[in-house]
C-alpha cells in the first residue's frame, strides 16, 4: 500500500481523521516512541504516507514504520508494532 512515488510524504496531522476512528483521544498530540531508535515525539511530527487504503506513519528520525492504519469495511485497523508505546494526551495537554 505504498503511495505513488511522485507524492511527497506528509506528516502526522494528515492522519488525525484516520487514527481518530480507532482511538478516542486526540492522536496528533499523543506521544509515540519509536521501537527502533527510541525517538519520542508527538504523532503530528512523524512522517505520514497516505493512500486510498490508509496510511503508513514513519519515525522522523530513523524512518522506521511506527504505525500502519488500514480502513476496512469492518473497522479501522491499526498496527502499532513499530512503536514501543503510544501515550494518550491528557485533556489539558498543550503542544508545548
Amino acid at each position: 500500500m505504498d503511495r505513488p512515488a511522485h507524492d511527497a510524504p506528509l506528516d502526522g496531522n494528515a492522519v488525525a481523521g484516520l487514527l481518530g476512528e480507532a482511538f478516542a483521544f486526540e492522536t496528533t498530540l499523543a506521544l509515540v516512541r519509536c521501537a527502533t531508535c527510541g525517538r519520542t515525539d508527538v504523532v503530528a511530527r512523524a512522517r505520514a504516507h497516505v493512500s486510498a487504503m490508509g496510511a503508513i506513519v514513519r519515525c522522523d528520525g530513523c524512518d522506521a514504520v511506527l504505525l500502519v492504519v488500514v480502513e476496512r469495511p469492518d473497522g479501522t485497523l491499526v498496527s502499532t508494532r513499530g512503536a514501543a508505546w503510544l501515550r494518550a494526551p491528557r485533556p489539558a495537554d498543550r503542544p508545548y
Partner: peptide, 10 residues
C-alpha cells in the same frame, strides 16, 4: 466530512 481534526497545529 469527518472532524474537526487536529490538536497540534492549532
Amino acid at each position: 466530512v469527518r472532524g474537526p481534526l487536529g490538536g497540534y497545529f492549532v
